[in-house]
């Protein structure tokens, strides 16, 4: 996907990828826990920075937005809970329960340093 995107960019064009990723420097058990807690496909065998470089991009910047991620994950849960009856009536009991559980799991994983969110900025070389 990144190689295809590089082809579409004009010379010196910029790519911005906001991603949730497994935190660096975790041991194998930590990586497994992070993969279970994060969204689908959160676990990659390479870092996004190296994926971008191998696709022919030059890295410009990597901005850590993990604290924003924690706040936003907590806010989704808080706002849904604040409107629990109405929200549940729209999405159904199963989705409601799943979202509540996922929210707790995500916030806990972020606070434990398992997941992070990063804005990668790269340019076409």
């Amino acid at each position: 996907m990144l190689r295809a995107q590089r082809r579409l960019l004009r010379r010196s064009g910029r790519l911005a990828c906001l991603v949730i990723e497994v935190a660096p420097r975790l041991d194998r058990a930590g990586r497994r826990r992070a993969a279970r807690c994060g969204p689908p496909h959160v676990a990659t065998s390479s870092s996004y920075a190296s994926l971008l470089r191998s696709a022919g991009f030059g890295m410009v910047d990597a901005i850590d937005l993990t604290e924003d991620y924690r706040e936003t994950a907590a806010a989704w849960r808080r706002e849904r809970l604040a409107r629990a009856d109405e929200y549940r009536s729209v999405v159904g009991e199963a989705v409601f329960a799943d979202r509540m559980s996922a929210g707790v799991t995500a916030v806990r994983a972020i606070e434990q340093g398992l997941l992070r969110r990063t804005l990668y900025l790269a340019s076409r070389r």
């Binding site: 996907m1 295809a4 995107q5 082809r7 579409l8 960019l9 004009r10 010379r11 064009g13 910029r14 790519l15 911005a16 990828c17 906001l18 991603v19 949730i20 990723e21 994060g38 969204p39 689908p40 496909h41 959160v42 996004y48």
Partner: peptide, 19 residues
């Protein structure tokens, strides 16, 4: 497999697509 000509954009963004 995006159906666009090469070098046709100044910028590309994706948010939570790669994860």
């Amino acid at each position: 497999s995006p159906p666009f000509a090469a070098a046709s954009f100044d910028a590309i963004c994706s948010t939570d697509v790669l994860c």
